[in-house]
Design a protein around this nucleic acid. Structure first.
Length: 548
RNA sequence: GGUCCGUUGGAGAAGUGGUUUAACUCACAUGCCUUUCACGCAUGCAUGCACGGGUUCGAAUCCCGUACGGGCUACCA
């Protein structure tokens, strides 16, 4: 068989040979120990937390080692392409401050190893595929999808492994004449690798995260170039990561199963193997109580965009992911609360081996703690960024009077307290919690009948003086309490609860609800100072009207 | 079905043969502080490391088997 002739027949008009590409993409000039990693999403939908998890690991290893982190778009599946997905991906990474050194859309230049869209690399893949054909390591296959399904069905019936391999690979030994004839009939074909492996042979492969794993040789004649001339993931991976000089292929563990294919491909192509690091996938518990991989389709609430819309602080989300990524990060962070996460020494071998559950509680805890360390200015900036991108129509309401907002935030963040409050989790939740300063809505119910509430409020208003300080103000609340059968001192109430209708706490609650609409708020006197005398009196009188 | 990976409390996990009465963080519970909330503090929370065997003076840690969970098994990535 004249393989060279076959190759020329299949790929008649390619501009260059393989050597051209090796020369075009030389070894990178980087310091010793520098690693090159990439994130290679496919534009099939919106990215979620799991993608960010991997991207953070990539980014840390690359930048920590003085290497390169680049973005490659794996758009080889035209059927699943979603318009606008690439922009969404880039914008999400940007929001979470994951920065690339080169790659798709990188400014001002994409980089020297492009193009970074796989679709645009068609010619490159075909050049290497042609070489494999010319060496007898790959061949054209004319089998239709229908035929393949039929083969699979037969294999299942007689309990043999499914797939295109060995004796089942009917196109393996087509003669040059047959190929020529079928090409002339314009029959569609794919290029398959001619596997020489034997699944009985096992060996140990070292993964940077998983450690030593058992792999069997591949024996499948996997498709490397599809009918449309575009490569499959496997082939594109081998070519791209070699030409782009990737040193560590960090990807999800769903790729562990196809590692044998990749190993054989690299060997066929004569490429040096990169190191591999297979990360565990993020899981969630679904309604039925089973642990499951996060999925783009089933878990829209885990899309990165969702966190952005709710206004989670990007850095807090990264802190959370870091705790999942490296077990010792959290302890380091507790010891060095003021150090940026980039100062932490991240390592692949400290990554977990089993699928971690996404834990919203933990994210919230980390967010609270992080936000409780922001300065007033930083908090204002954060809210400004959020409001201007997600709530533009409310921008004026919050920012036309920044003094007012500052007072509110000072109280809400507990800036004057010995220990800061931790009420704030994410931007939309913050806005909700400060809404009482902008609108008067009654969210909670009184703990007593309307008659009592009216009496207490009326008496309180009679003595209320805006100029009272906190303790003078509270003394008046105590007086109202005592006059109505409520204990003025908590200690008295606790020792003899049966002697009273309630305590000063209950009276405070009535006033609190009248003024703020809520049972639980930060210090009430301060809230009233911020609202101003007129507003406070208005709110109480409105409440009294509603009691009638 | 085949194959690979995994299995320590409600969650993330440390621990790879002997100061482990299994660290730390989150959640949860109780109490203290407190006019509510939040903060803070204190205490509690695995009788045992999926299960069953084995090796050993000694095992969460080594070996074998089983179960369970997850991935892959496409001209998807």
């Amino acid at each position: 068989m004249d393989y060279q002739k076959l190759a020329d027949m299949l790929f008649p008009k390619l501009k260059h040979d393989c050597q051209y590409y090796f020369d075009k993409y030389p070894k990178r000039d980087l310091p010793k120990g520098a690693e090159v990693l990439r994130i290679a999403p496919s534009p099939t939908g919106f990215i979620h937390l799991g993608n960010l998890y991997g991207a953070l690991a990539d980014e840390r290893i690359a930048h920590q080692s003085g290497g390169v982190f680049y973005l490659r778009i794996e758009d080889t599946d035209s059927k699943r392409k979603v318009p606008g997905a690439v922009e969404a991906i880039i914008s999400s990474f940007d929001y979470f401050q994951i920065y690339f050194d080169e790659g798709a859309h990188h400014q001002p230049h994409e980089g020297n190893y492009g193009p970074y869209y796989q679709k645009q690399r068609k010619e490159i893949y075909q050049t290497f595929a042609k070489r494999l054909v010319s060496e007898g390591k790959a061949y054209p296959c004319f089998c239709s999808g229908k035929q393949l399904t039929e083969i699979r069905k037969q294999q299942k019936e007689i309990n043999e492994a499914t797939g295109y391999y060995g004796k089942w690979a009917s196109c393996r030994n087509l003669t040059l004449e047959e190929v020529k004839a079928r090409l002339e009939k314009k029959e569609k074909f794919v290029i398959r690798m001619r596997s020489t492996g034997n699944v009985e042979n096992q060996s140990i492969f070292h993964d940077e995260i998983k450690g030593d794993i058992t792999v069997r040789e591949n024996n499948q004649d996997v498709v490397i170039i599809k009918t449309d001339g575009i490569p499959t993931y496997h082939f594109a991976h081998a070519i791209d990561d070699t030409l782009m000089q990737t040193t560590i292929v960090l990807r999800g563990e769903e790729w562990l199963g196809t590692l044998p294919v990749h190993l054989e491909l690299f060997e066929m192509l004569g490429f040096k193997l990169p190191r591999y690091a297979h990360t565990t996938v993020l899981m969630k518990i679904d309604e039925t109580g089973t642990k499951r991989k996060l999925s783009k389709r089933k878990d829209p609430e885990l899309a990165l965009d969702y966190y952005r819309q709710l206004g989670y602080h990007p850095y807090a989300v990264k802190l959370y992911l870091m705790t999942l990524l490296n077990w010792n990060f959290e302890q380091w962070h507790l010891k060095n609360p003021d150090s940026h996460l980039e100062e932490f020494k991240f390592s692949l071998d400290k990554m977990g081996q089993s699928g971690a559950l996404f834990d919203l509680d933990k994210l919230h805890n980390i967010s609270k703690t992080y936000l409780s360390r922001l300065s007033l200015e930083e908090m204002k900036e954060f809210l400004k960024m959020y409001v201007s991108s997600q709530r533009e129509e409310q921008y004026d309401m919050y920012f036309k009077d920044e003094d007012y907002l500052e007072k509110i935030l000072t109280l809400g963040m507990g800036l004057k307290l010995r220990k800061r409050r931790k009420d704030y989790i994410y931007a939309s939740q913050i806005l909700k919690s400060i809404d009482l300063f902008y609108h008067h809505n009654k969210d909670d119910e009184f703990n007593c009948d309307n008659e009592t509430a009216r009496t207490l409020l009326t008496q309180f208003v009679e003595t209320y003086d805006y100029n009272d300080d906190n303790s003078a103000w509270f003394d008046k609340v105590k007086t109202v309490s005592a006059n109505n059968g409520y204990a003025a001192e908590m200690k008295d109430y606790k020792t003899n609860p049966e002697k009273y209708k309630g305590s000063v706490a209950d009276v405070s609650e009535v006033i609190r609800i009248a003024v703020t609409g809520r049972k639980n708020t930060p210090d009430l006197w301060t809230i009233m100072q911020i609202l101003g005398k007129e507003e406070v009196l208005n709110r109480i009188s409105n409440t009294l009207k509603e009691l009638d």
